[in-house]
């Protein structure tokens, strides 16, 4: 197998000591303009994590965070605490991607098309996503915009989290419901 080529780190990405970031897709859709746009703490292992960031995005990752094959879709702010464990295929999104209003969606469809001719996209709802310390997140979990996951929570595999999660709650389902406490 060919040796993986080293990542070229954008200048507005900061990584703490003993943290590892791997994957060929990590910055494939990276349009972040803030500086810093990404702040990763120490002792993290982020394998094939795609940071799909818009111009105003800010992503913060604490210390001792582990993730693989995760997709981070950020237009505003995503904050991850310390010792958060992500199983594979997790999606985090702090944006709706497109407007809800049908008329605005037509305008949006044109603005992102090849015939946009400089038209600007209509405003799209975003809300910061926050995951506190010591959270476990199972495989195939999706966490949507505006959600605050409390410390020590346990998100069961396949859950789709649309609302705030109290500290130490065990969540399951689509939409995710509290099924217990840890």
């Amino acid at each position: 197998m060919p040796e993986p080529s080293p990542l070229t780190l954008p200048a507005n990405v900061r990584i703490g000591p003993d943290s590892v970031l791997t994957g060929s897709e990590t910055f494939r859709r990276f349009f972040a303009k803030r500086d810093p746009a990404v702040e990763i703490g120490s002792h993290c292992h982020l394998e094939d994590v795609q940071l799909a960031l818009g111009p105003n995005a800010h992503v913060r990752v604490g210390d001792h965070v582990f993730a693989s094959h995760m997709l981070v879709l950020c237009e505003e702010a995503i904050s991850i605490g310390d010792r958060v464990f992500f199983s594979f295929n997790v999606v985090l999104a702090d944006t709706d991607f497109h407007p809800l209003d049908p008329a605005l969606r037509v305008a949006d469809a044109i603005a992102i098309s090849p015939v946009a001719q400089g038209r600007k996209r209509p405003p799209i709802a975003t809300a910061p996503l926050r995951i506190d310390d010591d959270v476990w997140i199972g495989p195939n979990v999706t966490i949507l915009k505006g959600v605050h996951v409390g410390a020590g929570a346990f998100i069961e595999p396949g859950a789709l989290v649309t609302r705030d999660v109290p500290p130490r709650a065990r969540m399951l389902g689509n939409p995710a419901q509290i099924v217990g406490e840890v």
């Binding site: 292992h45 582990f66 010792r83 010591d134 476990w136 410390a151």
Partner: peptide, 22 residues
């Protein structure tokens, strides 16, 4: 996904020491 084991405990305090040592 088939998983017969969560591999990490439900208790966040117990997870903490494993993640700190990983």
């Amino acid at each position: 996904i088939f998983m017969d084991c969560y591999r990490l405990p439900y208790d966040p305090a117990a997870r903490r020491s494993l993640l700190l040592a990983a």
